[in-house]
């Protein structure tokens, strides 16, 4: 797994500025941008998958064993789309 930016020294940069590890931006946690946090209530959720489909950052994933959705707060930017699109208001936004 990639190191965060402040732990990389210039000697570790590949010749030709090649990025050898694809998708390594994941070490940057965009969840720190968030000012509002989606809260999920599984007892209200009707499992329509709408939040999953419409989240811009794919921060919502299904947990099939528990039959619920889980949020990845490392990457959720707190945009509020999931809360707005949920047809039964199972998601509420609150100050983070």
């Amino acid at each position: 797994m990639t190191k965060p930016m402040d732990q990389i020294s210039w000697q570790e940069i590949e010749a030709g500025a090649v990025i050898t590890e694809p998708g390594n931006a994941s070490c940057y946690h965009t969840g720190t941008w968030r000012s509002q946090r989606p809260n999920y209530d599984s007892s209200v959720c009707i499992r329509c998958w709408r939040c999953f489909v419409m989240c811009p950052d794919a921060a919502i994933s299904p947990d099939f064993q528990k039959n619920i959705f889980v949020w990845n707060y490392d990457y959720c930017k707190g945009c509020g789309i999931c809360a707005y699109e949920c047809p039964v208001k199972a998601i509420t936004m609150e100050e983070d």
Binding site: A25, W33, P56, A58, A59, G78, I81
Partner: peptide, 11 residues
């Protein structure tokens, strides 16, 4: 992948 710098709620 996550860690991208698109604004929150970007279409």
């Amino acid at each position: 992948r996550p860690g991208n710098t698109n604004c929150g709620g970007c279409g």
